[in-house]
């Protein structure tokens, strides 16, 4: 018998530090598989954010750097400009990318920087203990929206993929989920297309990955996946919002 599924080479042997059932690990594996498949591990530089995924520097077996909170796209820009033959990706959560780093992501996308962004949207701050994120759903209870997110005072959840896809410098944007095998397969395809866009120098690419945070949602991993499908997907529809063909 032949091994048909195992650990990709672009990951180190280190066990993930994430909570049981957290989707970060699946997203890591998919990115690593894509690096393996394109044979680009040795020319890739990854940028870890601040948040739970700060530890990605230990998990990806490629050159890595940790950015300050929200600044990963700017660090990526400096890298890609000074080392244009490398493949540069950032891995960011919703607090990092859509709150403190919203300016960075918008302008990096608008300049059409040839980088790939893996954006984990789990509608909450994980590392700091479950505070409201820009992507927290209306009515969702978090540590800092204990009565549920009230759009009158807290605004509405931001649809990052839709918003960024309006920018001309963007080559590829899609939103995927990881809550069941069919979604995981589609997510893998999206991540492939995102890196392919970069390899072909088409411009900025981003994959928004809807993920669970069982610990801070206060649900079991199975319940969390169900909650994601019932609550997040209706608000954050899956699919491609921009593909390279649209780049003029």
């Amino acid at each position: 018998m032949k091994k048909v599924f195992g650990r990709p080479k672009s990951l180190t042997k280190d066990p993930f530090t994430y909570c049981p059932g957290c989707h970060h690990g699946i997203a890591h594996r998919l990115v690593a598989e894509v690096l393996d498949e394109f044979g680009i591990r040795e020319k890739t530089i990854g940028i870890s954010p601040v948040g739970c995924a700060v530890f990605t520097y230990a998990f990806f077996d490629c050159d890595m750097i940790c950015a300050a909170h929200g600044r990963a796209p700017s660090v990526a820009t400096g890298m890609k400009r000074s080392k244009p033959d490398s493949i540069v990706f950032t891995y960011q959560g919703d607090g990092d990318l859509a709150a403190i780093g919203m300016g960075e992501i918008v302008h990096t996308a608008n300049r059409g920087e040839s980088i790939t962004v893996i954006f984990i949207n789990n509608a909450i701050y994980g590392m700091t203990g479950g505070q409201m994120a820009p992507t927290t759903l209306v009515g969702q209870v978090t540590q800092t929206s204990p009565y549920g997110r009230d759009p009158k005072t807290m605004g509405y959840p931001i649809k990052v993929a839709e918003m960024l896809s309006t920018l001309k410098g963007v080559a590829y944007i899609s939103r995927v989920a990881l809550s069941k095998p069919a979604y995981v397969l589609k997510a893998k395809k999206a991540i492939r297309k995102a890196f392919q866009s970069q390899i072909e120098g088409k411009g900025f690419s981003l994959v928004e990955i809807l993920s669970t945070c069982p610990t801070n949602w206060g649900l079991s991993p199975i319940e969390a996946s169900k909650w994601l499908e019932e609550n997040m997907i209706p608000y954050y529809p899956l699919g491609e919002f921009k593909t390279p063909e649209e780049v003029s």
Partner: peptide, 14 residues
């Protein structure tokens, strides 16, 4: 803020 973080990225590549 962005400018200094671009410096951080470029400096990291030497």
């Amino acid at each position: 803020i962005i400018a200094i973080n671009m410096v951080y990225g470029a400096a990291s590549t030497g």
